[in-house]
């Protein structure tokens, strides 16, 4: 049985290729926050490092729902792709070796979404990552009741 202090070491063990497992275990990567422009549009960059078969960051945190302008970079010496959630249809982009593109997403919040590289078993090797949208629903959509305790 492992004690909590070992968490970082154990995460490192499951977070790369051909370590504890064949691929990187989902959700074991880094976490970053998107930036926000004055008009509320959010911006962020996601990247595939060389030989990582994982997205950096593994978790991208958005402060609220809305429009996200995403820069997508493949620094790997292999070809991948990216299939992203967005209201209306998923967004697809092919990523040749050492390529860079972009995507504009519309996402509701709160809640979180997975996206991945739909090629081979990229998704299972580690190229599946999360976009986490924080915030609350609009005031008019809330229930008319006193504030309730949350977990």
């Amino acid at each position: 049985m492992t004690i909590a202090e070992d968490r970082e070491a154990l995460l490192a063990e499951i977070g790369g290729q051909n370590k504890a497992t064949i691929g990187a275990v989902l959700g074991s990567g880094s976490i970053e926050k998107a930036t926000e422009r004055a008009d509320g549009t959010m911006e962020a960059t996601i990247r595939i490092p060389e030989d990582a078969l994982a997205w950096e960051p593994g978790v991208l945190l958005l402060p609220h729902g809305g429009i996200l302008e995403l820069t997508i970079i493949n620094d790997d010496k292999n070809t991948h792709a990216c299939l992203l959630p967005s209201n209306g249809d998923r967004k697809f982009i092919g990523l040749l070796n050492h390529s860079k593109g972009s995507a504009t997403l519309e996402l509701d919040g709160p809640g979180y979404y997975w996206y991945g590289s739909p090629a081979g078993n990229d998704e299972g090797r580690g190229l599946t990552a999360a976009i986490v949208v924080g915030g609350e629903v609009p005031p008019e959509a809330k229930l008319d009741r006193p504030a309730q305790p949350r977990p």
Binding site: I72, I73, N74, C82, L83, L84, G88, D89, R90, K91, F92, I93, G94, L95, L96, N97, H98, S99, K100, G101, S102, A103, T104
Partner: peptide, 17 residues
């Protein structure tokens, strides 16, 4: 510095249908 290959803008997935 090696220039990145331009991957363009992501498209609706249903365009590939």
């Amino acid at each position: 510095t090696i220039e990145y290959v331009d991957a363009g803008e992501a498209i609706n997935h249903s365009q590939l249908s």
